[in-house]
């Protein structure tokens, strides 16, 4: 039991995966995760995925990017290298908007990408889920639902039976 990571069910359609995940949630399972080749509408709600850290990080870094881009332009245009362009004032803030916008996107996008990797604990060279048979097809045409051992309701036989009765194509026990 101690070497078991969880029980993984394989599904052939997104609808089957969503149905099984909903049923598992209603049955009281909480420690579970889903793997699919494309985003499945509604799955994060079913899995109760509500981690607000990344959106906040992106928002804060986006705002920081906006401020950085704007201040940099004010500093260069007004103080460091003042230059009369078309008779406009040195502090011509409408001109600074496009660059401030671009730096907002730059900071926010990098934070989203790197933050996602960091918060997911990546890069990671080993994960038990890859012991699941045919798991490589999670990136092409198969859908997987894993109920982990650490779930309070987990029971090797009952959980496997539950997944079998809720549309799973193949149910496998996955070792750590």
């Amino acid at each position: 039991m101690s070497s078991l990571y969880g029980i993984v069910a394989e599904f052939t359609t997104a609808e089957d995966l969503l149905y099984a995940a909903e049923a598992a949630r209603e049955a009281g399972y909480r420690k579970m995760d889903a793997y699919s080749p494309f985003p499945v509408h509604g799955i994060s709600e079913v899995l109760d995925f509500d981690d607000a850290r990344l959106p906040w990080l992106v928002f804060i870094m986006g705002a920081a990017g906006c401020a950085t881009g704007f201040v940099l332009q004010v500093w260069t245009a007004v103080f460091n290298y003042p230059w009369n362009i078309g008779g406009k004032p040195l502090f011509s803030w409408p001109d600074f908007i496009p660059i401030a916008y671009e730096s907002t996107i730059l900071f926010a996008a990098f934070t989203a990408g790197l933050g996602m990797l960091l918060l997911n604990g990546l890069p990671r060279f080993y994960h038990p889920i890859f012991n699941t048979p045919r798991f490589e097809r999670a990136t092409s045409d198969l859908f997987f639902l894993c109920i982990e051992v650490r779930d309070a309701k987990f029971d090797r036989e009952e959980t496997a039976h539950f997944l079998h009765t809720h549309g799973a194509h193949i149910v496998s026990e996955v070792e750590k």
């Binding site: 078309g86 406009k88 409408p94 001109d95 908007i97 496009p98």
Partner: peptide, 12 residues
């Protein structure tokens, strides 16, 4: 709106 504003402001 920003497109319109910046283009017209720059064109002057």
């Amino acid at each position: 709106n920003l497109c319109q504003y910046i283009i017209q402001w720059s064109g002057n």
